[in-house]
């Protein structure tokens, strides 16, 4: 195994996608925001915009 501190201190060698996947809190943010916007907010807006019957 290579020197541990060295790998830790050179994050620029870690590809961007791997960095994203290694960051649980970023993932948490994405996983909560996307459905909140696309599903809940959009859905609630559609229900709210149903017109009144005459």
């Amino acid at each position: 195994m290579t020197n541990e501190t060295e790998t830790e201190q050179t994050p620029e060698h870690v590809p961007m996608m791997q960095q994203i996947l290694d960051n649980p809190f970023l993932l948490l943010f994405l996983g909560v925001t996307i459905p909140t916007v696309l599903y809940i907010l959009w859905g609630v807006m559609e229900v709210a915009s149903i017109p009144l019957a005459d």
Binding site: T2, T7, H13, V14, P15, M17, Q18, L21
Partner: peptide
Amino acid sequence: MAVTPPAQRIWWNE
């Protein structure tokens, strides 16, 4: 294996 960290430190480039 699936219950240990990936064998390669940089697995994205596999």
